[in-house]
Design a protein around this nucleic acid. Structure first.
Length: 281
DNA sequence: ACGAGAACCTGTTTGC
DNA sequence: TGCAAACAGGTTCTCG
């Protein structure tokens, strides 16, 4: 269930396995993902050398030596595992795509819920492709700043929680990091998006960047720790401040747990939101 | 155009 | 213990 930091961790883990390597075998075991695999998908990967592995929002962009880009989205339950051929566990029924490099390293894409996708896009078309065209700014780049976020939120009547989940406003945030960022910025998830302006927007941008950087750093360190064969990439021990901590004490709120009830859980747009009603306004 | 809600799919956790 | 309902970190479609 990957948001930007998890996808970035997967990317960093896959760079060493894939970049500069040639794909000698590719198998599409189950083509009906969220977006169906092209009929000749596996055939078109075979023989290709991988030149670079980039990321846009939560899409992995694998640049191939024929000018095409292998686009990967992990959806909600997508995972990548790698290991030397013959050392991995038996294939699971949800291992939908398997590739092998010239060095005998296998990379598997497993996605039980099939909300993920893979496809091939011409390099020069990538920015206009329907999957990527509408995406907002990358949150970790300098052009994502308070003024820009304030402008994007202006006039919006929906909650700031829903607005931050909207990939057109800012790309790559999901439920967890939206909750964490709002907590860090001291902003209530119920606040109308249009009323996050000025200093509040600046604080929110700072919080988003800090939360994402911290999570990526945590993923990076776990990557070094778990670089064993047949490693599963991108899933590490998180320590959240509010997410999934309903009823637990709020860090930094020196209030009586019995009195306040601690972290609260509400449902917005059908999804759980966790926040501290005292610190977030 | 905007916002709310449903839908997609399967595995795991929770509650009676 | 067993079964059904609720829930899960994403995205996209429809409808009002």
């Amino acid at each position: 269930m990957p948001e930007l930091p998890e996808v970035e961790t997967v990317r960093l883990g896959l760079i060493g396995v894939l970049v500069g390597k040639r794909i000698v075998r590719a198998v599409a075991r189950r083509p009906d993902l969220r977006v169906a695999l092209p009929p000749d998908f596996a055939q078109r990967l075979e023989g290709r050398r991988i030149e670079a592995l980039e990321r846009r929002a939560t899409y992995l962009l694998v640049k191939l030596d024929d000018g095409w880009i292998w686009v990967i989205h992990l959806g909600m339950s997508g995972r990548m595992t790698t290991g030397r051929v013959g050392t991995l566990p038996p294939l699971d029924r949800h291992d939908h795509v398997v590739i092998v490099t010239q060095e005998d390293i296998e990379v598997r894409f497993r996605d039980p819920r099939r909300f993920g996708l893979m496809t091939l896009v011409r390099g020069e078309d990538i920015d206009h492709h329907r999957l990527l065209a509408g995406l907002g700014p990358e949150p970790l780049t300098p052009d994502f700043n308070g003024a820009m976020l304030a402008a994007a939120l202006k006039g919006r009547r929906t909650s700031i929680k829903a607005a931050l989940l909207d990939q057109r406003i800012v790309a790559g945030l999901g439920n967890i990091y939206v909750c964490e960022s709002l907590f860090r910025a001291g902003i209530s998830p119920k606040r109308p998006a249009g009323r996050v302006q000025g200093e509040r927007a600046v604080a929110l941008v700072k919080a988003i960047k800090a939360v994402l950087k911290k999570a990526i750093a945590a993923g990076g360190s776990s990557l070094r720790d778990h670089r064993q064969p047949s490693g599963e990439l991108g899933y590490f021990q998180h320590s959240f401040t509010v997410y999934d901590r309903e009823g637990k004490p709020c860090q930094g709120c020196l209030c009586d747990l019995a009195e306040t009830g601690g972290i609260r859980r509400i449902v917005q747009g059908g999804r759980s939101t966790f926040y501290c009603p005292r610190r977030q306004r």
